[in-house]
């Protein structure tokens, strides 16, 4: 299972990657494997507020549906336009082209303490 370095993780199997002053958010390789073929992603509106730990969207597979919990609080500044037409990229490249939203974090320094390192996430998923 792929748990790349340079990312932070949540217990609900989302990842965060900081790029400049924005945070890229997606779901982990483990999560996409459990869900199976992703067929639809319900995305938040650009400009909406995300709150750490709250659901901002859902991912639908053929016979499963999962909430996406925001790893950080902040403004949603961009959603991945590719997911509407080709949601399967979440299965193929969960950490790169399969990203879900970009958030401008409002309280990163405090909130990052609630996130998991790659090592901690690995322990979680192999438990």
């Amino acid at each position: 299972m792929n748990i790349p370095a340079g990312y932070l993780y949540t217990k609900e199997h989302e990842w965060v990657k900081i790029e400049g002053d924005l945070a890229l958010v997606g779901i982990t390789d483990f999560a996409q494997g459990e869900l199976g073929d992703v067929v639809f992603v319900q995305l938040p509106d650009v400009g909406s507020k995300a709150k750490q730990g709250d659901s901002f969207g859902t991912i639908e597979a053929v016979k499963a549906v999962a909430d996406i919990y925001s790893p950080l609080s902040g403004d949603v500044v961009e959603v991945n336009p590719e997911l509407a037409g080709t949601p399967e990229i979440m299965n193929r490249e969960p950490y790169t082209s399969g990203w879900i939203v970009k958030i401008r974090p409002s309280n990163f320094d405090t909130e990052k303490t609630h996130l998991l390192t790659p090592e901690a996430y690995k322990d979680l998923t192999s438990a």
Partner: peptide, 11 residues
């Protein structure tokens, strides 16, 4: 099918 009760249950 994810709309339906056997998957989404209370939602």
């Amino acid at each position: 099918q994810t709309r339906e009760q056997h998957i989404r249950r209370d939602k």
